[in-house]
């Protein structure tokens, strides 16, 4: 038995050493990599953004608002913090993390929609958070979702299990074998694609439409956030981005969601720009799906939005 225990201990010790070294290489590699979404998180954590204008929101922000156009038209330095697949709570966490290492912006463009007041239960694209479990702000929020468990937070490398491509990207980056390039510019990337037919099929399946979920705690969190930004002197403008006209009546409670935005912005005396009736919303040509503008639409939208902000 003694021989067995000795050998097992030796084997486990050697493996632990290799394992921890491997984990270190993956983690460090990813933390300096421009691979996929890590590029933006690393940029945020590096504290080198320090933008005058921050664009907030979900995929409706990062797919539709081009910081390059804003920079040129408003002669400023802007950055898009939009986060794909998440509602307001995670959007606010991303901003909070941004402020850990970057200065307060002068202006904030908050892109909202009828889905914003929901909070999903699971983590979408959870691997993007894996290298940053040392950030308590992030982990506190992550723990409010299903996805990572105790062992992922407390066991080295567990958060990467099942994500071999990420592990290899981190390893190759660490060893200097590959230098990945970010696929976003200042957090933005448009999609050059024409209309997908998925919505037409969905509409046929649900002719009565769909109800947008509104969670009171999310509405409250959003209002408190805007209040705080105002107090801090950040000039906020809330923007309801275009959604295709044929989709608008599909959301049964769209008007009541809109009233919440109007109510909050009026109460706090914050600008609210609604693109629902804008000509962009009338044409399928500008969208790749009912709630996302394609490259052509995004360019027009950013230009129009910037002009409106400029004139106010």
């Amino acid at each position: 038995m003694r021989k067995f225990l000795l050998k097992i201990s030796l084997f486990i010790s050697i493996f632990s050493g290799i394992y921890l070294l491997f984990f270190y290489l993956v983690q460090e590699g990813i933390r300096k990599s421009d691979y996929q979404d890590f590029a933006q998180w690393n940029e945020i954590y590096s504290g080198q953004i320090n933008s005058d204008v921050i664009i907030m929101g979900s995929s409706r922000a990062w797919r539709q608002v081009d910081p390059q156009i804003i920079d040129e038209k408003l002669d400023c330095n802007s950055y898009n913090l939009g986060i794909d697949g998440y509602h307001i709570p995670m959007q606010l966490t991303k901003y909070e993390i941004y402020l850990e290492s970057n200065r307060l912006p002068e202006r904030m463009i908050y892109i909202v929609d009828h889905f914003s007041f929901d909070k999903r239960e699971d983590l979408f694209n959870k691997i993007q958070f894996a290298p940053y479990f040392n950030d308590t702000i992030l982990t506190k929020r992550l723990k409010s979702y299903e996805g990572y468990k105790w062992q992922h937070y407390n066991t080295p490398y567990f958060q990467y299990s099942g994500s071999k491509e990420v592990a290899l990207a981190g390893l190759t980056e660490s060893l200097g074998l590959k230098d990945f390039k970010s696929n976003k510019f200042k957090g933005f990337r448009s999609k050059d694609q024409s209309w997908e037919n998925d919505f037409d099929v969905e509409r046929e399946l649900n002719p009565e439409g769909k109800r947008a979920k509104v969670k009171a705690e999310v509405v409250n969190e959003f209002q408190l956030f805007l209040e705080e930004q105002k107090k801090l002197g950040v000039e906020v403008v809330v923007v309801y981005s275009p959604d295709y006209i044929g989709f608008q009546d599909y959301i049964i409670n769209r008007d009541s969601v809109m009233q919440i935005y109007e109510g909050i912005t009026q109460k706090l005396d914050i600008d609210f720009i609604d693109f629902s009736t804008h000509y962009l919303s009338q044409e399928k040509d500008y969208f790749y799906n009912p709630t996302h503008l394609n490259s052509k639409g995004a360019e027009i939208f950013t230009n129009e939005l910037t002009s409106m902000i400029e004139s106010e």
């Binding site: 084997f11 050697i14 493996f15 290799i18 394992y19 491997f22 490398y157 299990s161 099942g162 071999k164 592990a167 290899l168």
Partner: peptide
């Protein structure tokens, strides 16, 4: 060989 097998299990695990 055992160490490599164990490392491959850790790194190249498919979705559980």
């Amino acid at each position: 060989a055992y160490l490599a097998t164990l490392l491959v299990i850790v790194v190249f695990a498919g979705d559980l």
